[in-house]
Nucleic acid binder design. Sequence first.
DNA 1: TTCATTGCAAATTATTTGCATTTGA
DNA 2: TCAAATGCAAATAATTTGCAATGAA
Lengths: 152, 152
Amino acid sequence: MSISQEKFKQMLKEKGLKVTNQRLLVLEVLACHKDRHMTVEDIYDLVKEDYPDIGLATIYRTVQLLLGMQLVDRISLDDGCVRYEIGEGISAEGKHHHHHLICRTCGKVQPFKDDWLDRLEGHIEEETGFHVLDHELKFYGQCRECLKKTEK
Amino acid sequence: MSISQEKFKQMLKEKGLKVTNQRLLVLEVLACHKDRHMTVEDIYDLVKEDYPDIGLATIYRTVQLLLGMQLVDRISLDDGCVRYEIGEGISAEGKHHHHHLICRTCGKVQPFKDDWLDRLEGHIEEETGFHVLDHELKFYGQCRECLKKTEK
DNA sequence: TTCATTGCAAATTATTTGCATTTGA
DNA sequence: TCAAATGCAAATAATTTGCAATGAA
């Protein structure tokens, strides 16, 4: 579950930052499109529907702010665009992860939930002394639909 | 083990492409710096030592070519730079993978070899029908050295 | 010879920054 | 009131493209 608007307002205040319409809208747009992997341009277009005067630079600045606050993740799907996704939140049981399955034929991206890597993280710490905080995992291949078309 | 120069020449000829000094040098520079994660600018500087007249655009074009031929991988270490790495080659036993451990404090990147994900790939195919060909896995955290400094 | 490739410069795209103005606390 | 935030335009950075000249087959 991603962050609530109230919690976000509170976090801003704690940091001495201001609650603005622009910031709330950027967060809302990201929260309402969890499973899309949004570019800055995507966010810009959606926020403009509610707030036509917003500037592109504000989107860039807000996204940087949200990254710094760990409320969104930056992902790169290797199509050359930088994309952003609202974070899944951190619970007592640890992070809630999903990975991305990227189809090399049609480019579609589907999420895949899994906690398999938690054990691997422990293994890495033992072997290398590297303390793992987070990970990003992408799989490349062919989705079910493209696979079917190939078989025909 | 990455690709040999002879094999590369042969692949180019099969595609009706020409063997040029520039192409050989870009591949060589990547092969000689396996464990560095090279930006286009890094490659440019190194190739220029042997071939001062090469243009930056040629590096961009050659890297695209090598990507298309699956001889190099594009990686993004989230410092904003796009980086390239020579492929590990595909053997009969499957792909030879390494992951990246990225230190959030000092930015250092260390490789980590592991075949743990092969089983997860099988699991994904069963559950989603997505046929996995390759993957990229990054871990974020703190390296041993930065961890020590924090403890003091 | 002939067409792919190259280097260069200009064009394009993505992102950041400076600054006058506006706005939230 | 007043520093933080915004919108705009200009600046910067990264990458691509057009084109005449070059070079591999």
